[in-house]
Design a protein around this nucleic acid. Structure first.
Lengths: 338, 338
DNA sequence: CTGAAAGCGCTTACAG
DNA sequence: CTGAAAGCGCTTACAG
């Protein structure tokens, strides 16, 4: 059943039926009711392509998978995507996932030209991420989950990574720790740089050193957490507390702790950033992990919302949000062993 | 730049330019060359919606996120999706992700009516999954990653879960184990049922019991792995070996082992199913975990391939693949302690 | 080998 | 409040 058939059935013009369906105010109440009922009866759905062609709007937002980025390997991305998809389906928008194997710039350029999305979502940007300038040049609306340090003006939603790790570090200092290690993602990612800055600022604010030997950055896998922690434990003056940028790094750190005879929550303190991954909950581990928490699902919802506003012509300079991050205190964080 | 402008620039009709671009054989070689060069120069890309409308093909395949299914919470899904996206982008197809909040059937129905996808992908079906019959009724091509036990005929790609867990169980029996526990997903998922069957078949083939007390099924989280393992360890005759349906369940089981004074690879054996999740690699844990392995990324690639063939009119009854699963022997699997 | 024209199924000025 | 008609940007019989 298409619009033509539906309107013929109703004895109305396509114009009127289309207007009734799309909620235009000038349609008579009785007419609208008839149209809506018929549409329901016949399960009429406007053809997406036709509507897109006529309106010039794609009714979709896009996300690009990049094999160079960690996102592909990042299980947490699923949760973000679910948030995006949920929000989009509320307003009958699609979300379109592309994969950039190799030529990432080319993929973005193609998406921009083909006009199959109204806006693009960028995740986990690097500090000098070139994608933003490129997409702006192509006139493609975009919203960034995270930030860059490029000085460009663009819509974004980020969490307060600097503040979160500042707060976490300060807590550890207040508990008496003086040597606090940081297991982080590679610093080319802005969120990692921000977390490093928060850690450093908290230490120097208390007159403590933030030596490079106490800081490690690598893809956030269990194994890298293990390796980095082992490295820190082998220092002549090893840390008594660790900050981990992800639950996976924390798992690896906990393994390293066990193997070196440390007991988390006794003679080693741990704080991990928790993205809300459901398969591993920090509160149910032994001991329960202190975390900095921000729901990545909620971020996905909000980012999609912003993207769709942009697609509808919202001011791209207006959207800039930095969400606070909770520090959730649990058993993994104690004063240093005497 | 659109087709009209491009053809005017070339002094050709839209027809010819369109045919040249789409590789139709009747176009003169010189003409084709000119057209291709001009298209390249002007970075011409056909408008996706217009093409879809004209051809009636959406050029996209769809995946529905369901909050009822574990897939939403399943980090491994990212990897599957990446495989799908990679394959689709090879042939310039889109992948469209929808979210079914609440009314899952309604979401599928809408997708079918709106014609924005040519085929649908179903993941982790339950044994009596109703979605397949529904989509077949709507005339929507689909391919299932996994199987049902409905007896319906549909295209699918599955891994040999029964065989994998049969093989793993047999290995443990051969090593001398007599009490082998199974930490599984809920049995309403077909893959869980198949794994349970493989476990049971191996045990009974050797005249061993497969008592329900040794089998647990729940969402595959670390915590549930911990809980189920704790439960098994409290039995009067506890298992000396465990089979885990996911790396997360295995992590929980390892934690339970530690807390009850067990040492994996010494007085407790462990085999986990590995989907190839990059954030936690079984081979780098302590001890390295024996696994049944099958790449979920590769499955995503192949499933997308099948879906696109179907969209192009391939025979839906022809595609049915069951991939073998490797058993990778590592340090977590030893004979029972004397 | 090339082109004029119809058509895909919508939306939306414009007219009444 | 309703409708006839043009147009969105492609593809594809049909004709030559």
């Amino acid at each position: 059943m298409n619009l033509k058939e539906l309107s013929q059935h109703l004895g109305l013009s396509q114009t009127t039926v289309s207007r009734a369906l799309n909620g235009f105010p000038e349609v008579g109440e009785a007419t609208r009711k008839r149209v809506l009922e018929a549409a329901e009866t016949f399960q009429y759905r406007p053809n997406a392509s036709a509507r897109k062609l006529a309106t010039g709007r794609a009714g979709a937002i896009g996300i690009v998978f990049s094999s160079e980025r960690n996102m592909l390997l990042d299980p947490i991305f699923t949760d973000f995507l679910a948030g995006v998809a949920t929000q989009c389906s509320r307003s009958d928008n699609d979300v379109l996932v592309s994969s950039a194997q190799g030529d990432e710039a080319g993929t973005y350029r193609r998406l921009a030209r083909v006009r199959s999305v109204d806006a693009l979502l960028l995740s986990s940007p690097t500090i000098d991420d070139p994608r933003i300038a490129m997409l702006q040049r192509l006139g493609m609306p975009l919203v960034v989950h995270g930030r860059t340090q490029t000085g460009l003006n663009y819509p974004y939603l980020d969490i307060d990574n600097e503040g979160a790790f500042h707060k976490a570090t300060t807590l550890l200092i207040d508990l008496g720790h003086r040597r606090i290690g940081l297991l982080n993602e590679n610093l080319r990612f802005t969120f990692a740089t921000h977390r490093s800055q928060g850690w450093r600022r908290a230490l120097t604010a208390r007159g403590l050193a933030a030596p490079p030997e106490l800081e490690g950055g690598a893809r956030m896998t269990e194994e890298n957490g293990y390796r980095m922690a082992r490295g820190l434990f082998e220092l002549s003056d090893p840390p008594t507390a660790l900050l981990c940028s992800s639950i996976f790094l924390a798992l690896g750190a906990m393994r390293a702790a066990r193997e070196t005879g440390r007991i988390v929550g006794k003679n080693l303190s741990l704080i991990a950033h928790d993205d809300g991954l459901d398969a591993i909950r920090p509160e149910t581990l032994t001991p329960a992990l202190t975390t900095t928490f921000s729901s990545i699902h909620a971020a996905g919802v909000r980012v999609a919302e912003i993207a769709m506003a942009l697609a509808n012509g919202a001011d791209p300079t207006a959207a800039a949000e930095i969400w606070p991050v909770d520090l959730v205190f649990r058993g993994s964080t104690v004063p240093p062993a005497p």
